[in-house]
Amino acid sequence: MASLISCPHCGARPKEEFTIKGAVLSRPAADAGHQAWTDYVYLRDNPRGTHREYWHHTSGCRRWLVVTRDTVSHEVGFCQDAAAAKLAEVRP
């Protein structure tokens, strides 16, 4: 019926405006090996509790976001632009 996601660009918006891709994983390097790639493409954790997911604000600003969501309480915590998250990860 309803859930609100706080888009860092648009504010609190209904979940119907978003598309969920799934867990935030980092894409392995091309030479990372078969196992790393199989994990990346096929294997997913099913965590109880905090889960970092890619959400796309498809019907809004069209930015990809990293949404931290609790799979038990449905609480949506930190919500960050995915590009900003990736760049922050790489920079240090």
């Binding site: 891709k21 894409r27 796309h56 069209r62 590009a83 900003a84 760049l87």
Partner: peptide, 14 residues
């Protein structure tokens, strides 16, 4: 379009 945006923003924002 969604896929390209994902690539541009989440995979290769640089």
């Amino acid at each position: 379009m969604n896929h390209l945006e994902f690539c541009a923003q989440a995979l290769w924002p640089e």
